[in-house]
Design a protein around this nucleic acid. Sequence first.
DNA 1: TTGACAGG
Length: 748
Amino acid sequence: MEELEGYVENIVFRNEENGYTVLHLSHPEWDDEICCVGCFSYVAEGQYLVVRGERVFHKEYGEQIKMVSYEEKQPEDSMAIEKYLGSGAIKGIGPALAARIVRKFKEDTFRIFEEEPERLAEVKGISIKLAIQAANQFNEKREMRQAMIFLQDYGISMNLAVKIYRQYGQEMYEVLRTNPYKLAEDISGVGFKIADEIARQAGFYQDSDFRIQAGIIYCLQQSTAQGHCYLPQRELVDVTAQLLGLDPALVDCHVDELCMNKQIICREIGDQRCLYYGRLYYMEMNCARMLLDLNLDFPVKEKELEKKVKSIEREEKIELDEMQKTAVFQAVQNGVMVIMGGPGTGKTTTINTIVRIFEEEGMDILLAAPTGRAAKRMSETTGYEAQTIHRLLEMNGAADGDDRSGMHFERNELQPLEADVVIIDEMSMVDIYLMHALLKALVPGTRLIMVGDANQLPSVGPGNVLKDIIQSGFCDVVRLEKVFRQAAESDIILNAHRINRGEPVEFRKESRDFFCLERSQPQDIINVVIQLIVQKLPPYVNASPYDIQVLAPMRKGELGVLKLNELLQMYLNPSMPDKIEKEFHGVLFREKDKVMQIKNNYQMKWQKINAFGDTYEEGEGVFNGDSGVIRTISTLTETVTVEFEEGKMAEYDFSDMEELELAYAITIHKSQGSEYPAVILPLLSGPKMLFNRNLLYTAVTRAKKCVTIVGSRQMVDQMIRNINEKKRYSSLCQRIQELEASDAEMLS
DNA sequence: TTGACAGG
């Protein structure tokens, strides 16, 4: 970590929504300006800053400081004061006036501004009016600094303090005194917890109305982190009461008041009162409306279409089965449709044919997926450029961490996507936010084709978008069920289907691709895993140990990814005198290690190099979930070279290493969208929320040739019985059905 | 207890 101080010479880029800023810092003693990057809540050119951060090397923009924290500082010597005043920090005062002011008042300048502003007019060229105005500005900044210090006493970070001050200004003190919980409402980044702590310090009662209401809203917001779009009243009241340490009855009577103030929304589903955080209610509602509006009929001549499909089949040397043909026909005829299918059911072939048909009509087609990797795979399998939905919609300004406040999409109802067809793959990963954003950017007349496997892991964000759409029955859904892969009669596929149906898996003695080795102690499980990956499986599936993937449900714990990686590294890639190592954030990376990129990086350059050392292909972009092997580590150039699939070599600066993780073992979540010859699955125990049917299904279907579960059979059965996404409260399905019914009524 | 997305 470095610390440097200097003037903000110029602001190269600034996103006002979230503060993401690129700026140049200068100092009289430096030869060159230094570029700093980060989320600066408030900056202006001419400010004097103390910046702490890491020195990194950006491939395009060179050396820069990645800001970790910063503060504004008042300059002290007269040179610095003059520079500060003259920098434009105070309106009406330029370099010339600043010089004159400082020549007169020297080190006393700042005191004059604060205490005797009228004396500024003694300087030639400064009127009384300008003097007062300048002093006011100056003092505003001082007040801000005081406010910062005040807030920091409550344990509030600098960044939050700036946000709070920007929101309320001097009224901040009043807000803090009367209702600190307002902070949680008005300021993203201040949650109930921080507000509650401030309130406690300010002497608020445990059962104050403000506290209870803020608590209810907070719990509703928090429930979205569990994937809910709403909570039944009973459940909401119970969790809130628990959080606040109060009696449920006391909480319950506040719910109605919040509904009346429209702070939360209440709707009945069946005989159950459901409470929504407003934004989510409107999102579901709008999604339903937009989906229905999008679902136009496009009449076609079936004979001609059939002919076209035939000729594509001939050209591509493929043969579509009945369901695939149905999918193609529906795609052409409907504004909205869903294609569902597990791995190996021919989704790719179907998408390809659909793309070809539309292409021959000269239509504009856009392909996208919710993750970078899925998009990349879509590009590879279709031969058309696919991108993340976020990029498609030109996302802007998502801040780090959980703060989604600044995030928005440039493509929306005002500037919709210009396309005839939009095809989205891996729809199961799309949450209600993303769906809403996508739909807003589509106009009726554009076809929306959604492809996915509803049995995979649910989306990160709230909602059961794909399942709700399918269940609502408003559009055509084609289910591809026939398994084309050669392993059609394999136990992997059979068991995957059993898992889906909720039946116990069969471990047949004579099975050739689906095994369970029962062990009850973590250490035994680890030993078996190592034995499998080092000795037994490679010859069995005819692959190298690096092709075999260990998948674990969790990161932490005795059987977590972190621990497993440490051990597997020891056995698969032990330390050797000639292997260079580099520690980063407590993890040791070594040459020949199997690693994975954990963040989309569109700038990362890669090249393919032939046996003579010549580059024969190059490009950009490494995606979240891509795995590779460390080829070289250079302590001299401070770089790590990683070889990804197809010999793509990418060079990481040491400071980019936060984008890499060891990948002998990865979480099942991370494996979604990838396939491996063999999968080893250590399963023993863990939280019920996580150990569910989807997770097991996702893990099992990653394997092409062989699945080996090591651990508890009982846990396997438990997971199959544990359908927890049923517990995701969402109502997109109901909203669609309601609107569809009322549309029909209007027409009749 | 796990997770994605981007900007000069």
